[in-house]
Amino acid sequence: MRWIWIDKFIEFTPRTSAIALKNCTLAEEHLHDLYPDFPIVPHSLIVEGMAQTAGILVGEARQFKEKVILAKVGRATFHRLVRPGDTILFKATVEQLNEQGASITGRVELLNQNADGLNVGSGSADMLVAEIELMFSHIDQNMSGVKFPEHNFVFTEQFTELLANYRLDSTITL
């Protein structure tokens, strides 16, 4: 089973941009692993969340036919910590996209909601968690004849369902 690091998409514009949301909670064991008595979300997992958001954006651009692999983290600059109870937004924007791969710029922001659940802080400088540049490779196009399994082992159902749920765009009633 893959470790899905985003909870849902809240915006998805094919070939252009996507925003995914993740709630961070004390119930996640790994938050306790880095510093005793001071739980935070490890930066590496923030990069992973951005990679998943951006990876699905890149994969969808070619209807998930390509095996999209995170090939390079060009830059990752962190501005603040993410702690239990925080909700974060992974904002991915396509810079370049072609048959060989894609480059993405990402911003991770804290979602600061008021009592009515409205976002009052996202986009402001003090809500900025990280700026991340990623490169993705369509590996079948870039490996000079090296063969990979035919089935797309990157985009499992768990990933594609995230997008399907966003597109469902309806309230599920009991």
Binding site: K72, S103, N142
Partner: peptide, 9 residues
């Protein structure tokens, strides 16, 4: 190898 794609972009 992946840097060449990065340079190209």
């Amino acid at each position: 190898s992946i840097d060449f794609l990065d340079i190209m972009f």
